[in-house]
């Protein structure tokens, strides 16, 4: 890996399903991720964020998806040219993934100690004793209380939060350099979610793991992201640093989403009425012509109906896929409108 090349780099990733990949669930997604940083992939259900992640991991069932990209490089390796055997060698050791429902990825009939050891021995030749020591160590890292005893526990004997910790342990046991977390806290209670988010950032500091964190919860994004990429209807609409996205959103969807979310911040007066994003998320068969968001966008100009917007830079490291990006003056006038 040379110094100029980002750790993970995607250019125009597209994924299609169905015959000849006709259902294009992901279109032209491009972003970079630096080693040891956290990128949040934000979007609603069906926006293509999970498909993007599984494409990086190469986890689509053979023949089910058509993945194309101008570039898909991780740590200097071209993932697109890797065959299934090479990919499965990289999964676990270089990149790993955790999911929303840990029960679906844990075998209910095996102890967690066994499953963790297996995950380790798949990639590294270590003796059983050394493996057990590593398992114990990683369980302590993910803050499993009474870890030595819990190694003999079965998944159903653990709480949801504990299971998600086990999943994180299993993903990290071979010290991968990229961790993809697909809504790992969505099914958890907020107090437990706070613990898991804290744990992830702590492990990131320790191991230097880069994280792609997939979520629809803007609060979580604000909590952990370095960079944010916003997806809508299968395509990326805006990307930038977490401060850019939250303080100076420039795409109509990002701005709308931020204002439409009911949040509680202590000491701040809650607004009387939430701002709505009108309409519904379009299905892939009924995408409007031009910008996919055009029918729901309050800033849409006639030209937005004509052509799909290209990327344009609004600031250093902050790009938007909007021909009418929101600037301060427009945001202010929009705010005045809502006040009236």
């Amino acid at each position: 890996m040379t110094a100029q090349q980002p750790f993970l780099s995607l250019r125009n990733l597209s994924v299609g399903f169905g015959p000849q990949g006709a259902i294009r669930a992901v279109r032209d997604v491009s972003f970079d991720l630096e080693a040891g940083k956290t990128l949040c992939l934000v979007g609603e259900s069906g926006s293509g964020k999970s498909v993007t992640a599984t494409s990086i991991m190469g986890l689509h069932k053979p023949g089910s998806a058509v993945v194309t990209a101008d570039r898909l490089r991780l740590d200097g390796r071209d993932l697109l040219s890797c065959d299934e055997a090479q990919l499965s060698g990289l999964r676990g050791s270089l990149m790993a993934m955790i999911f929303q429902d840990p029960m679906s990825s844990l075998n209910p009939a095996l102890t967690i100690g066994f499953q963790l050891r297996e995950a380790l021995q798949l990639h590294e030749k270590v003796s059983r004793k050394a493996a057990d020591a590593r398992v114990l160590e990683i369980l302590q890292w993910v803050r499993i209380p009474d870890a030595a005893r819990r190694m003999n526990a079965y998944p159903h004997q653990l709480s949801g939060g504990m299971r998600q910790r086990i999943m994180i342990a299993m993903a990290l046991i071979c010290r991968p350099r990229l961790l993809i977390a697909d809504e790992p806290t969505t099914a958890l209670d907020v107090t437990v979610q706070a613990q898991i988010l804290w744990l992830l950032s702590e492990l990131q500091r320790e191991f230097g793991t880069a994280i792609i964190f997939i979520t629809h919860d803007l609060g979580v994004v604000a909590e952990i992201a370095d960079d944010v990429a916003v997806m809508y209807a299968g395509t990326l609409v805006e990307r930038g640093s977490v401060h850019d996205i939250f303080e100076r959103p420039s795409h109509g969807y990002t701005a709308g989403l931020l204002r439409a979310t009911a949040e509680f911040v202590p000491g701040e007066e809650s607004l009387g009425r939430l701002e709505e994003i009108p309409g519904n998320v379009p299905s892939f068969s009924m995408l409007p012509k031009g910008c996919s968001f055009v029918d729901r966008c309050r800033f849409a100009a006639p030209s937005c109906h004509e052509r799909t917007p290209d990327w344009r830079q609004v600031a250093e490291g902050h790009d938007t896929r909007c021909d009418q990006p929101i600037d301060d003056a427009r945001a202010a006038s929009a705010l005045r409108e809502t006040m009236i």
């Binding site: 907020v190 979610q193 804290w198 911040v265 202590p266």
Partner: peptide, 23 residues
């Protein structure tokens, strides 16, 4: 519980999880 709710303010991050343990 209130401390645990993630806030949409990237500049005001929590320093640690407010409540330990599971219910």
């Amino acid at each position: 519980l209130l401390e645990s709710v993630p806030r949409p303010r990237p500049s005001q991050r929590r320093q640690r999880a407010p409540l330990e343990g599971d219910p």
